[in-house]
Amino acid sequence: MPFANFKMPQAALSRAQKEELVHRTTDLLVDYFGEAVRPYTMVLIEEVPDGGYGRADEVFVVPEAYRARDGA
Rank of each mutant, 00 (worst) to 15 (best):
V43W: 05
G34E: 05
D57H: 15
D70Y: 11
Y32T: 15
A72W: 10
M1W: 13
G54Y: 08
E20A: 07
E64S: 06
Q10W: 04
Q10T: 06
F60H: 10
V59I: 15
D50K: 07
G71Y: 04
E20K: 08
E46H: 15
R67T: 04
T25V: 03
F6N: 04
T41C: 13
V48C: 15
I45S: 03
G51A: 13
E20V: 02
E47A: 06
R15E: 09
Q17T: 04
P9R: 11
R38A: 05
Y40L: 12
M8W: 03
F6G: 03
R24C: 10
I45Q: 01
V37D: 00
D70R: 03
A65S: 15
K18N: 07
D31N: 10
P9C: 13
L44I: 13
F3R: 00
G54A: 11
P49H: 13
M42F: 10
G51R: 13
A68M: 01
R15F: 03
V59S: 14
D31M: 06
S14P: 02
R67W: 09
T41G: 07
P2T: 08
A36T: 14
R69F: 04
F33D: 01
R55F: 13
R55G: 13
A68Y: 00
F6S: 01
D57K: 15
P39M: 07
P2G: 07
E58T: 15
L28K: 01
G51Y: 09
M1T: 15
L28W: 00
N5C: 12
E47P: 02
S14L: 01
Q10R: 12
R15Q: 10
A56Q: 12
L44G: 11
V30F: 05
T41Y: 03
I45L: 15
M8R: 10
G34H: 04
A72V: 10
E64H: 05
D57C: 10
R69K: 15
G54T: 12
D27Y: 03
E20G: 02
Y53I: 04
P63E: 14
V62G: 02
T25Y: 11
V48A: 09
K18C: 12
F60M: 12
F33M: 07
A16D: 01
N5W: 14
Y53S: 13
V43C: 12
V48K: 06
V61P: 08
A68E: 01
D50E: 10
Y66V: 01
E19S: 11
A16S: 02
Q17S: 05
T41E: 00
D50F: 04
P49T: 13
F3W: 13
T41H: 06
P9A: 04
V37K: 00
Q10K: 08
G52N: 03
F6M: 09
G71E: 01
K7P: 11
T26W: 03
P49W: 11
D31S: 12
L13V: 08
